[in-house]
């Protein structure tokens, strides 16, 4: 077994439980925000922020990115930049042209 994959280099089990509880609470919070505030701009930003927080927790702890990031940033960051570029490139035709 490679040293990098040894369990000592993974998060402590308590961290997994904490993240799991946080994910459950966040899911109920986003549903609650929708129920209380309804569908609209006010609830949208809260719900999307919660989603980003949930995804970050899963990636950092469950997927061990917190520990593997120094080895993986070189392939993850370019892809994320390209994904955002796709949206920026399409923005003028699909969104902005209809707003004029």
């Amino acid at each position: 077994m490679d040293a990098h994959d040894h369990p000592e280099h993974a998060p402590k089990f308590q961290a997994y439980i904490n993240v799991f509880v946080a994910l459950m609470i966040f899911t109920l919070a986003s549903f609650g925000a929708y129920k209380i505030l309804g569908q609209g701009p006010s609830s949208m930003w809260i719900i999307l922020a919660i989603s980003v927080a949930k995804a970050t927790l899963v990636a950092l702890i469950f997927m061990h990115l917190k520990f593997d990031w120094p080895n993986l940033y070189c392939i993850v960051i370019p892809v994320c930049v390209m994904a955002v570029m796709v949206m920026i490139v399409l923005l003028p035709d699909i969104v902005l042209s209809w707003r004029q």
Binding site: V76, V79, A83, V84, L90, I94, V95
Partner: peptide, 22 residues
């Protein structure tokens, strides 16, 4: 997984653009 990130962000991104366009 990074190819999968491209795949799904492409799809979700276009969905966001479409629903905020017309």
């Amino acid at each position: 997984l990074v190819t999968e990130i491209m795949f799904f962000t492409g799809m979700i991104g276009v969905y966001l653009l479409i629903r905020n366009g017309q």
